[in-house]
Amino acid sequence: MTIRVSALTIASGRAAHLANVIRGLSRQSHPPVELIIGVMQDSDYHDLPDCPFPIRQIRVTAPEMPLARARNAVADAATGEALVFVDVDCIPDPDFIRSYLDRMTGRHGLFMGEVLYLPQGATEEGLDFASFARIGVKHSDRQGPPAAGIAPCGDYRWFWSLNFAMWRADWQAGPRFDETFTGYGGEDTDFGRSLSEAGIPIWWIAGGRVFHQYHPHCMPPIHHIDSVIRNAERFAEKWGHRTMEHWLHAFRLMGLIENTAEGLRVLRRPGPDDFALCQQHGHMPYANSRRVIDRLQQVPQDARGVTREAEVARDERAMLMPAAR
């Protein structure tokens, strides 16, 4: 029996990126039975590409991006036996769905596939997946899937909502994204922690590949500093320590925040120089917080030894808790 698969995404703006997601899903060797879009803006998307499956749009709006609520909404609305989540800026490879199903069969839990980052202009001539595979690069700060097959992910902190899949039965029986996390940051790690606490395994798979489309971005995300701080403290209320400590460490080095005994305190708003430091540029397939940390501490990019890694990890861990009195 053919397994029915629901493809799920959430989006605000990024209409051209969404169109490429739809084109990628239209070329699947195992096509989805539907695409459900969690629309985080005031109007639905129009003039979407023709595709061989129905598209449903579910409006989920709030003053700040309701990422957790939108993911819950599209998953709850799905009708397929399997759910594949893909971010709006990620184009699924033609074997994206099939390779997920090959690894998921006979197992339960949450499954995470591969992500390759494309340079600026890679999609201007259409979708050339052979070219994408040649020029796409892995993220230097992200743990990746195994070379073949499937492997357990032993640390919930590696969960990444950019590209993942679950059986619908596991979604319905397991934890949900916590909708008290609003705006950008933290809801992914909270969901991963909830899965871990519930004893639900997280897996890396070889395959399930998506190609991340270029768009200018800031890392660390200084354009979302308020929600990052709020959600880091919300995570601490729930689990006893903060998350997103690498971003918080970078914010502290930039002089944007300080860690006090009473919590995180904003010292100043990001200015033009901060955005220039953190901004992704055309020659960069992705923005990178570690690049910013190294520049602020005047450490060459090629000086990443064991001692340096331990130093950065120590400084980041210091942001997990309020400063000592």
Rank of each mutant, 00 (worst) to 15 (best):
Q297A: 09
P63A: 14
R193E: 04
R295K: 12
L127G: 02
I58Y: 02
G183H: 03
V210D: 02
R265A: 13
D141T: 15
A130C: 03
M40P: 02
I229G: 05
R107C: 04
R103M: 15
F129R: 01
A165D: 03
M219E: 15
V74A: 01
P201D: 12
A62S: 15
R314N: 01
F159H: 10
V115I: 14
F211Q: 01
G38W: 06
H215C: 00
L25P: 06
G80V: 10
R176Q: 03
N72W: 08
D87C: 09
A173T: 05
D273H: 07
P63N: 13
L67M: 13
H217S: 05
A19C: 08
A70T: 07
K138F: 09
W167N: 00
M321C: 07
T123R: 03
A324N: 09
D102K: 12
D50T: 14
W203S: 01
E258C: 12
G255N: 04
E245T: 13
C90Q: 09
E124V: 11
V86P: 00
G207D: 02
I205H: 01
M244A: 10
P221A: 14
D273P: 00
T260I: 00
G38S: 07
M244I: 12
P31I: 13
S196R: 10
S43C: 08
K138R: 14
E311F: 11
A148R: 14
S12Y: 12
W167A: 01
I36M: 10
A73S: 12
A130R: 13
R142K: 11
M254D: 04
M254N: 05
G263W: 07
T180W: 01
V88L: 01
A303W: 05
I37N: 04
L253K: 13
A169T: 15
G149K: 08
H281Q: 11
P49G: 08
A206L: 03
Y184I: 09
A310D: 12
I10F: 12
A287T: 06
D170H: 05
L83F: 03
M65G: 05
R308F: 13
Y286A: 02
R291C: 04
I3R: 09
Y184W: 15
I22L: 12
V306Q: 14
M254V: 08
Q213F: 02
M244C: 06
G24I: 05
E179Y: 07
M65C: 08
N259D: 13
P175M: 07
Q120S: 13
D93A: 15
P270V: 06
F132M: 11
P92G: 06
I91R: 07
A318C: 04
A236W: 03
Q172H: 09
A198Y: 01
M284T: 04
E262K: 05
P175K: 05
G126D: 08
H281G: 05
F211H: 07
